[in-house]
């Protein structure tokens, strides 16, 4: 564990907590894409299958449970909780996210580190996470103005993988044989997809107004 990865995990945790805070306290999911949340639930479900087979650390297992629990409960809230579901913008959240799942699965079957069930699903979760934010970014452009909590959520979610990139650079130089091209490229693509959001986020942030 290094400071970059810890910062990345804490940023990721913060993004989840901000979203849960918004949904649970003000009972609103305005501006939040249910489709992105569904993709993230699939990402964690396929990435953390090894939670039962390989134990890395208490921290690792605890965080996996947090991310699994939060992503599924956010989907449940947005789908079935009456008050929250009412604030879900179904008409605008129309990105065909299921069209993302199949290509990621095919790509994982073609490009992976090991051809085993767990490894292919793990690789699939990497590819899917890289594009999971797309429905949210599309929804963002359609709804133009979003509230600060949603803006913070997206900023933190985009930032965590950026910090992971620093972690990979650090591990590459400090650990022999630490080379994971698939993870690195997927992480880079994922972070680059946030580029224009970051641009507008900092513009607004510096201007001290909400994210538009």
């Amino acid at each position: 564990m290094n400071i970059f990865r810890l910062a990345g995990d804490m940023t990721h945790l913060a993004s989840v907590l901000v979203l849960l805070l918004k949904i649970h306290t003000i009972k609103s999911c305005a501006g939040v894409s249910l489709r992105t949340q569904e993709l993230y639930a699939i990402v964690f479900a396929t990435r953390y299958l090894d939670i039962f087979t390989s134990f890395v650390s208490v921290y690792n297992t605890f965080m996996k449970l947090v991310f699994l629990g939060s992503s599924f409960s956010i989907v449940w809230y947005m789908r079935y909780h009456k008050a929250v579901h009412r604030t879900y913008d179904r008409e605008q959240d129309t990105f065909r996210h299921w069209f993302l799942v199949l290509p990621c699965l095919v790509l994982a079957l073609l490009i992976h580190e090991k051809f085993t069930f767990l490894e292919v699903l793990w690789t699939f979760s990497l590819y899917l996470e890289a594009v999971a934010i797309l429905p949210q970014l599309v929804l963002l452009q359609r709804t133009r103005n979003i509230d600060n909590l949603t803006g913070q959520y997206i900023f933190l979610l985009g930032g965590y993988r950026g910090l992971y990139i620093l972690n990979w650079i650090y591990r590459y130089f400090t650990e022999p044989h630490f080379v994971h091209w698939i993870t690195w490229i997927a992480g880079l693509v994922q972070t680059l997809l946030y580029a224009d959001f970051f641009y507008y986020y900092f513009l607004r942030f510096i201007g001290g107004r909400g994210v538009e």
Binding site: V56, N60, M63, K114
Partner: peptide, 10 residues
């Protein structure tokens, strides 16, 4: 670290 536990990241 053997490959099986290669995924030590979240």
């Amino acid at each position: 670290k053997d490959d099986a536990a290669a995924h030590d990241e979240l």
